[in-house]
């Protein structure tokens, strides 16, 4: 699959001047690493993804859990969350720029805003799917509230939590790049856009490959964890 894609890319590059060849792209990317000019951008992007994801997790997991456990919160938030899905989160980016100014802060906020929803939704679904006898068991064995969460809810929900983490990471990543396309001081998205503006096609394609690789590797790693958890649960 991957090999086929690269072959197709190589083929297209021979047919069009607007497509840089894989070899050119890779070497342009290597140059950026060699002269160190890429690190500022790589850092900015990864920082925004990490901060955005962490904020989304810190808000999304507890909120999703609360919505799943409380009938009242469920009744209030279910329609809100469903409605929010219809609105592209990215339209709020200008407002975030107003608040945070151009920089990592705005990209992080964008990532957090976008990633909080999938994390919340999968957590809520996970809580609701729990065998209703388990909370009853927890009560009959006099588990403390903390033990009930750590020994019953978290392990019982581990697969949904992992799905939330994986999707949340992807969404955070996507939104940081999109935000960087709009307005940023640094970032791989900005770098790719600049390369496009200067018609530096090898660099543009090189950055795109790097972004794809980061997304792919991150996802595969999380997916592997998810599968291991799944096997354990059998």
């Amino acid at each position: 699959m991957l090999v086929a894609l690269i072959l197709l890319w190589a083929l297209l590059s021979t047919m069009s001047d607007l497509v840089a060849s894989p070899a050119e792209s890779l070497s342009a990317l290597m140059d950026r690493f060699a002269d160190g000019s890429i690190y500022r951008h790589l850092n900015a992007t990864m920082q925004a993804v990490a901060i955005g994801f962490l904020i989304a997790a810190a808000v999304g997991f507890p909120l999703g859990y609360a919505i799943g456990r409380s009938k009242f919160l469920g009744a209030v938030f279910d329609p809100l969350v469903a409605g929010a899905f219809a609105i592209p989160r990215v339209i709020f980016f200008p407002i975030l720029l107003q608040i945070f100014g151009v920089g990592v802060g705005a990209q992080s906020a964008m990532a957090a805003l976008a990633a909080v929803f999938p994390i919340m939704v999968s957590t809520t679904a996970g809580v609701r799917a729990i065998n209703p006898l388990l909370p009853k068991l927890a009560r009959s064995l006099s588990l403390s509230p903390l033990q009930t969460v750590t020994k019953i809810y978290v392990p019982a929900m581990a697969p949904s939590l992992m799905v939330g983490i994986r999707i949340g990471f992807s969404i955070a990543f996507i939104n940081v790049i999109i935000a960087e396309f709009f307005a940023a001081r640094a970032g791989l998205g900005l770098l790719a856009l600049r390369a496009y503006g200067m018609l530096d096609l090898p660099t543009m394609y090189g950055i795109i490959v790097l972004l794809a690789a980061i997304a792919l590797i991150g996802n595969l790693a999380l997916w592997a964890v998810e599968r291991r958890l799944g096997n354990k649960q059998l």
Partner: peptide, 12 residues
């Protein structure tokens, strides 16, 4: 100690 009708084992 209680035993319930449905499965209450911890599957993990």
């Amino acid at each position: 100690a209680m035993v319930f009708q449905e499965d209450s084992t911890l599957h993990w």
